[in-house]
Design a protein around this nucleic acid. Sequence first.
DNA 1: ACTCCCATGATTGTATACGATTGCGTATAC
DNA 2: GTATACGCAATCGTATACAATCATGGGAGT
Lengths: 235, 235
Amino acid sequence: MSGERGLPPVDLVSRAYQRIRDLIVEGRLAPGTRIIENDLANHLEISRTPVRAALQRLQQEGWVIGSGTGKQLRLSVSPMTQEDARELFDIIGTLEGLAARWAALLPSEHRADLVEELRGLNRQLREEAASALPDPRRAYELHSAFHVQLVEAIHAPRLRVLHSAIKPQAYRYRQVYSVALIPATAEAAAEHEAVLRHIDAGDPAAAEQAARTNWANAADRMARIIQTWGEKGSW
Amino acid sequence: MSGERGLPPVDLVSRAYQRIRDLIVEGRLAPGTRIIENDLANHLEISRTPVRAALQRLQQEGWVIGSGTGKQLRLSVSPMTQEDARELFDIIGTLEGLAARWAALLPSEHRADLVEELRGLNRQLREEAASALPDPRRAYELHSAFHVQLVEAIHAPRLRVLHSAIKPQAYRYRQVYSVALIPATAEAAAEHEAVLRHIDAGDPAAAEQAARTNWANAADRMARIIQTWGEKGSW
DNA sequence: ACTCCCATGATTGTATACGATTGCGTATAC
DNA sequence: GTATACGCAATCGTATACAATCATGGGAGT
């Protein structure tokens, strides 16, 4: 997804951003946890400056939330609620719907290549889910790759930035209930296939609708599962 | 919209963000202009630290763009191009379409209040455009308020944040060609009215479609004007 | 005269230092 | 025993100092 191999030529704030985000996604920084710049800086073995920059970005993207009126604000990890999940999934569905629409408007040659590539990913996803011992991490990677590639394929910088900022937050929810979601992979793959079919046919409206339906269903599946809360992580 | 008349309890980075953004919107920092942290800090009479934080936020929102592979990156004001305008308007239309959809799903009482409030704004907008000496600033404010209030009305924090980050960038284009756009205000107001009618009727699909159409038409109007006036800063 | 190399300046990334504000604990007074 | 006030520790915002890297220009050599 991010694919940043190569440690030296990356500035500390990007790495801090990634690492803190991972801490949150993995649940090691549990929802509601108070965030102290100093502690994070110590944990990451860097100074407060890059941590601060990373935190500001995380705050703007909604990973951490600031309380306290303006001045002396305190940061904490954004809580995970059902309403938030619903809003999140709806927004992503809308954005990806737009991506699917644009994809269906590409020249037919590009469309064919794209559909072929995504069909490959989708097939791998199906196989992984149907295997005897499904690997949640690999399923996650394949699932994520499908959606990322779809947005990546159209040349739309702003949409790409938005999507890359928001979509991982859905995977935060997905991660928590990853085991419970494995059985639903087949449905998801089928929905993916529907999107691809409409893109292949060059039908923008249908492609958009299919993508939105996919995420709406994902929201439903998630809502059904949300019952027990994530436990606190120690780190 | 901004309306932060300088109470002391506002941190420097927020103020720096606002001021730099205003510089960009007003065109005093022209598209393509190279950005030097020190110069900005001197100009704003603060240190580099808050400027840096503000710049990072501006970069993430797409106001400034960073070039240079990873390491030693240089910032410059994002250029204004026709493709960018098109993408921007489409994205905003999609987001506001979602907002309109949700608005149409509100309890009918809330809907009535909302529609009434927005009708008021729309009427003021019409009057301003129809007056003998239209004030572009006031038209801008009213127009902006309409869209902001629509999104504000539904209780959707993430959508609100997204909208507040993206929409002002459309007004950057709008600002540049503000004079040329005045005659189009009547059309815009009519389209607004269509959105309100569908929200009032509680028809989510129609409301969403109307909002998207509004922004699609806005994109067309903008494209026509850019065509004749030329793009700024893409070179 | 042209080219190449080195040095100096400019610009950014990172760390640290300092002042201010806030929340909490404790001690004292009622 | 309880409540309030005072003080200290914790944390954050801002400034400044330092290091690293890149560009640019001038001088020397061919």
